[in-house]
């Protein structure tokens, strides 16, 4: 691996900017994601910043099952992000559809619509679990390169 690729990989791992998107969650996972971003856990230690626009973000943090109504919006948000981009599914519903599996208005988990890089189970997933999931994603990227 060339030295420039090493530097780029290092920078990528040290500066994950996230975008939070609710694809139809009951709000419990959203509250836990917000809790993970509070000063108590201080994710800025690892360079994590919450961004408002998909253009700036590297990681799309999705919560909840994909409803049929939000499906097109989720795809559009995903396509608005610049490469390289990663997706994290937070909570049981986001990983598989959860208790909403098979409902007439629900498509299923996030991976039914867009590729997912990390799954964080839990109902709701606790802030510690979410941080652990992000760390595991970063480890995976480190190992893959």
């Amino acid at each position: 691996m060339k030295i420039i690729d090493k530097i780029v990989l290092w920078a990528r791992l040290k500066s994950p900017w996230i975008l939070h998107f609710n694809t139809g969650a009951c709000n419990a996972c959203d509250i836990e994601i917000i809790a993970a971003l509070t000063p108590r856990f201080d994710l800025e230690r690892f360079g994590v910043q919450l961004k408002g626009t998909p253009r700036h973000a590297d990681i799309l943090v999705c919560s909840g099952p994909v409803t049929r109504q939000i499906r097109d919006r989720l795809v559009r948000i995903y396509e608005q992000m610049a490469e390289p981009k990663f997706v994290i599914a937070v909570g049981s519903c986001a990983t598989s559809g959860g208790v909403f599996e098979g409902l007439y208005n629900v498509q299923g988990g996030i991976d039914q619509v867009i590729p997912v890089d990390a799954y964080i189970p839990g109902c709701p997933a606790s802030p510690q679990a979410i941080i652990d999931g992000v760390v595991k994603l970063i480890k995976k990227l480190e190992g893959a390169a």
């Binding site: 530097i7 780029v8 290092w10 920078a11 990528r12 040290k14 500066s15 000063p39 201080d42 800025e44 230690r45 360079g47 253009r55 590297d58 608005q80 992000m81 610049a82 490469e83 390289p84």
Partner: peptide
């Protein structure tokens, strides 16, 4: 800013890492 909020705050290389990452990203 982080210390004022009783947080640890980012490591010393954070702004440089942010810039390198942005320059390595594709643009839309």
């Amino acid at each position: 800013y982080a210390r004022f909020q009783n947080r640890v705050g980012p490591p010393w290389f954070q702004p440089v890492a942010d810039l390198i990452k942005l320059f390595a990203k594709s643009e839309v």
